[in-house]
Design a protein around this nucleic acid. Structure first.
Lengths: 366, 366
DNA sequence: ATGAAAGCGCTAACAG
DNA sequence: CTGTTAGCGCTTTCAT
């Protein structure tokens, strides 16, 4: 069970120095500044280190001393199973991970989803040994955000919330994108539109967890900036076309389960059977809705127009009419903002471009 | 730009104690052991902390003192874009993240893919402030593994390599699973089989990065235990049926790109046009192969049987004949092994169950 | 090129 | 309940 020279006590830089009868500085230099000592001495240090089973300078102690953790934290407020099943969220994480890899930084996932109590989540945020935080799509009143800010570390917010003091933000123009998409739908001739969206607030005033008709008050004051802007974008287009924005049928879904879109579609159509276009604020919702419509014998786009948002691969391959947003790039930019902060030291707002994708799921109303 | 009482220097536990004229212990207790001081004193501590902008005990300093980092490291040796596009790998990460969340631990992604030099990757491994490592499916001669081991931290290996001294392992019986699948294919009557697999070694002796015919030497000595076992499983079944295992046409693919399976199928069929069954060691390969075959006008399963491995959702929904493995559970178990190490202190081997899924992509040869 | 001294910010005994 | 004493393991001036 014990290798040759495994000492009872873990070897440290100091013990190694003692063993070698050199100063700790020298050992430290052997690892961190090879040019500060002779090559042979360095070799001697490294070889006895190996012999003693010294793993090299302890990362935590080094972090304490240098005040650098070598990692950025990603605060994930959604339930993990959601984050890991939504392609757009994953693309974001992939982009962030990529930029961290390039910068030689670690990426620490800090999950503070609803599965944990707020105090447990708080502990996780406070315990994260990181040099900065990325906050991904949190609600305006997220309870963990103040804790993140309290740590006085650089923070980059992605998508939402806006107006976090001191934080840079990477986002898209949700309102304009959704307005443009809606204009397209209206041009096709649709007048009765259903909107399927993620939950409008952290709370959930409906019974059960399934998609439910959102009441107008909630629609007017969503706690998520993104939802708010997207709804506003739809309203803009409706108003512009001389339609009443309040006539929009809005169904909110607590989470994006594989079936959420389908159930949401049912709810919307039951609430307003005259709907001819179903606009979804996420591709996963739209795809699920399409599946459900097909099962009900409703043809898309013949009898129902369906649109999504995100531009995930499956959506594009299935010809969904949607808005493509650069999810990977969001992650990359967020990381870069942390790794190479803007010279000014001021916070930055980066608005990334989106693109309207006219697919095969939209057409004139029946 | 400056809040009311923002001191030039970051507040620390000591400065807070001085301000309050109490000992550092008391302040520490206010955060870590609320029962060790009066509620009112604690309140006073916390409130002046807020006033001073003290974010609470520094996680790094605490880690140094307590010798606990509060996070586990996940060493990812594949290119990130692969890890984040393979559903099976993602399920694994999701399971691991879930168990970390439940244990109140962070999850530090340490990417040491081929995009970075070995020395950069080494630095990342050595710099990770973690209490243990999960190594996900590394090659037998992975250059970073020794570094991980060198840190004398608990290690859990997933899938491969085997026989890492001191490390626990979570895996499946790849050989038995693949044997069973092959037996099924043979029962259907197939005799000429093509095998599409991930690259057989860290090196890549072929020109270009696309799928290529693997030479027999390489097939006999893969550097990845999993590939090795799966090929062996196929051989077992072939030998059992009185066929020559060396007659197997093996095509290896450097990475799992969306098109890898399709190109691999082309390569295999060109090398041996008599092939009637294409067995793939990953669903993503099989799905891509199916797409390609359809494009070529080859009917599945009428003219070609195709099988996969993993049991990812898309494969199951498309009726792929495959082996389902519990990827999420792998991640969960790996995490648990780290968070609640077996009482014995000895390393453990956990072999999780797999299930043969007879789908609609397999049938008798034409 | 090498060493001595001085902490980084915190917690864990152990006394009082 | 509160304070004193000792470091955790390392890097970094500043001398030599």
């Amino acid at each position: 069970m014990s290798r040759s020279p495994t000492p009872r006590r873990r070897a440290t830089l100091a013990s190694l120095a003692a063993e070698l009868k050199v100063s700790r500085t020298t050992v430290s230099n052997a690892y961190n500044r090879p040019d500060q000592l002779s090559a042979e001495l360095r070799e001697r240090v490294l070889s006895t280190a190996k012999q003693l089973g010294y793993p090299g300078p302890d990362p935590v102690a080094r972090s304490l001393r240098t005040r650098k953790a070598g990692a950025v934290g990603l605060m994930i407020t959604e339930p993990l199973n959601y984050s890991f099943s939504d392609p757009a969220a994953l693309d974001f994480v992939a982009g962030l991970a990529e930029s961290c890899e390039a910068a030689g930084q670690g990426l620490l996932l800090v999950a503070v989803g609803p599965n944990r109590s707020v105090s447990e989540g708080s502990a996780a945020v406070l315990a994260a040994g990181v040099d900065g935080f990325v906050v991904y799509s949190a609600s305006d009143d997220d309870p963990y955000l103040p804790l993140v800010l309290q740590r006085h570390l650089p923070v980059v917010v992605v998508d939402q919330p806006r107006d976090v003091p001191g934080a840079s933000i990477v986002c898209i123009d949700d309102r304009a994108a959704m307005r443009r998409l809606t204009e397209y739908v209206l041009e096709l001739g649709h007048r009765e539109i259903g909107l399927l969206t993620m939950r409008l607030g952290r709370d959930w005033p409906h019974s059960g967890r399934g998609p439910a008709l959102a009441d107008p008050d909630r629609v007017r004051n969503p706690q998520f900036h993104v939802q708010s802007e997207r709804i506003r974008g739809v309203s803009d287009a409706l108003a512009e076309a001389g339609l009443n924005p309040d006539a929009l049928t809005v169904v909110e879904s607590y989470e994006h389960l594989p079936t959420s879109g389908g159930v949401g579609a049912d709810v919307a159509l039951e609430a307003n059977p005259r709907i001819t276009a179903l606009m979804c604020t996420a591709d996963v919702l739209a795809l699920s809705a399409m599946d459900r419509l097909r099962a009900r014998g409703v043809y898309v786009p013949g009898q129902m127009t369906v649109t999504g948002f995100d531009g995930v691969p499956e959506a594009l391959s299935r010809g969904l009419t949607t808005v493509r947003q650069p999810s990977v790039e969001k992650g990359r930019r967020a990381g870069q903002l942390l790794h190479n902060p803007p010279r000014s030291g001021l916070s930055v707002v980066e608005v990334l471009d989106t693109e309207l994708v006219r697919g095969r799921t939209s057409g004139p109303p029946a």
